[in-house]
């Protein structure tokens, strides 16, 4: 008595010997379609999601790279103010609402402007203080303007009437608070170095053992990246 395996074998043998003629025109159709299909397949080798992921990484890298230093580094910011002779009208234009400096004061520079309170009512800064008694100390936070033509970030902090208690100060524009990171600090120091000012690298290294050995590498990489970006985007 036969079993199913013998039937399978018999059928397999019979069918494997069978050949069927290819319908007319099939080869010519194949010849026509083959080049375009092969091209299609070769272009699909780099999947679109890889391209999307690469774009995302580049975008993230750029945004991180352009990150500015933390705003609450008072000493650093004060230093910037002292060493930068920025016309008052430029500062006034960039500071948001709570601090309104009339055009009367435009002739003075930031360096020689008196920030001490005075009894003179005609003094524009004093009048501002009088108008908003709850905000005796107004802090103008960073002008983090990212301009393509000038990648330099000018960070300004205005301390008007520093005698008053800091706890009471709640400037409206502190929403612009930036992430304080080691990278931000490094960027700030690098910018300072690019401006030709001395930088205390040792101070930056302190407390950051991870960067103690390679901080110079990081700095060099950043400078190179910035130069490359400038060259690529043709930023002056």
């Amino acid at each position: 008595m036969k079993d199913w395996n013998s039937v399978d074998e018999k059928w397999r043998e019979q069918l494997s010997n069978k050949s069927e003629d290819i319908p007319e025109g099939l080869w010519s159709r194949l010849e026509e379609r083959l080049p375009e299909r092969l091209e299609e397949k070769s272009t699909r080798r780099f999947p679109i999601y890889w391209a999307a992921a690469a774009m995302l990484l580049i975008a993230l890298g750029l945004s991180w790279n352009w990150n500015a230093p933390a705003e609450d580094e008072a000493s650093e910011l004060t230093r910037v103010i002292e060493k930068t002779e920025v016309p008052v009208e430029k500062i006034a234009a960039s500071v948001s609402e709570p601090l309104i400096i009339p055009t009367k004061a435009t002739k003075s520079t930031f360096a020689n402007a008196s920030l001490q309170p005075t009894s003179d009512v005609s003094d524009p800064i004093a009048s501002v203080i009088e108008e908003s008694p709850k905000e005796e100390m107004v802090t103008a936070v960073p002008i983090f303007e990212k301009k393509e033509e000038s990648p330099e970030i000018v960070t300004v902090r205005l301390d008007i009437d520093p005698i008053m208690e800091e706890e009471e100060v709640k400037p409206a524009f502190t929403q612009q608070k930036r992430r304080k990171s080691l990278f931000g600090k490094i960027v700030g120091e690098i910018r300072q170095a690019l401006d030709g000012e001395p930088v205390n690298w040792q101070k930056l290294k302190e407390g950051n053992p991870a960067f103690e050995n390679n901080i110079h590498n990081v700095a060099n990489t950043y400078i190179k990246t910035e130069e490359n970006l400038k060259r690529t985007l043709q930023i002056q």
């Binding site: 036969k2 199913w4 013998s6 039937v7 059928w11 019979q14 069918l15 010997n17 069978k18």
Partner: peptide, 19 residues
Amino acid sequence: FDLAHPDETLMQLGVQEIE
């Protein structure tokens, strides 16, 4: 489940009939 034994006729089919 398994069919015990196939019909003998299945062994005598031609290619056309099998297909």
